[in-house]
Write a protein that binds this DNA or RNA. Sequence first.
DNA 1: AACTTTACCTTGGTCGGCCAATCAATGGGT
DNA 2: ACCCATTGATTGGCCGACCAAGGTAAAGTT
Lengths: 168, 168
Amino acid sequence: MTTGHATPAEEACTDALPTAALSGPVSHAVSRVARLHRIAAGKALRGVDLYPGQELLMMHLWDRGAVRQTELIRALDLDPSTVTKMLQRLEQTGHVRRRPDPADRRAVLVEATDESCALHTAVEAAWGSLEEHTLAGLEPAERTELVRLLAKIEENLCREAEDCPDRR
Amino acid sequence: MTTGHATPAEEACTDALPTAALSGPVSHAVSRVARLHRIAAGKALRGVDLYPGQELLMMHLWDRGAVRQTELIRALDLDPSTVTKMLQRLEQTGHVRRRPDPADRRAVLVEATDESCALHTAVEAAWGSLEEHTLAGLEPAERTELVRLLAKIEENLCREAEDCPDRR
DNA sequence: AACTTTACCTTGGTCGGCCAATCAATGGGT
DNA sequence: ACCCATTGATTGGCCGACCAAGGTAAAGTT
């Protein structure tokens, strides 16, 4: 793929030679991989009544118990409004319960419902199988290298986003 | 990051130790990188009146001229309905023109408007600068390795998606 | 104590993106 | 010629995610 030659069979999953891929091969790849990954996650999660993205929120709740919404925002690194709406939907589907924080009358405490805990293992299994499938055919060394490189570009992107300056 | 130790300073951009990251480090990283990358793209594209995602569509049109919608769907590898809605918005903002295909009365031909072509260079510059920024600090060897690994996992994910079986 | 700033969350709007279902036109099979 | 399967595109509904703006409560200032 980095070399110029490509047999017709090999370019099955790729378009011919879009300038997007030439002008920004990594950006291009990241977009495509992310999209495919999200679709795969969606399929794996369909059986547990969760939509992709929600599983990370739930995992955090399962991990930490009752937390205030701000912590979710910080941990998931999402927009506050996004979390609000996700929680509204998760509450409606009975996965999550919200109650006012007695210590701070403007804050909200969030926790996973007991019923949702039944999904815990299923979700982790799905997440693990997704990971395994994503990395199929990669040797251990390649995997750690991939993680290292992804962490590097994440930090690059994070720096520009100026999300990091404050101690999040 | 794969090792257990992490100084307080180093985990600045990462949450403490979410099971999500342990249970699927690559999946986790892909999500985060993709999100940050999209935000960065959004910032870079804000000056050109385009939203992230639209630039790829426009680049394809600039490349290939008038194409039918099916080709966009295939090339961008998106859901048909997604493309339809994107085109409706792009048409409304004057970046794109649509007309019926004389050869096939159910198809639609899409092409970039002349005005949109003015953005061509700006978009490619933005895309290139985004790429450069994403890869800041990575040596050439690391970059090609990253591309190679991303391509590998893309193929893995693509295979499961069963989008590939037919000759796209 | 009164005022100002900051923190926590919500609402409204917009986009990209998916799925499921639908309609219209083409093309094959008999 | 007819019927049926396939292809091209659209609609409606939903979710994740963003931004901008607003409202309320806590903390900091004077």
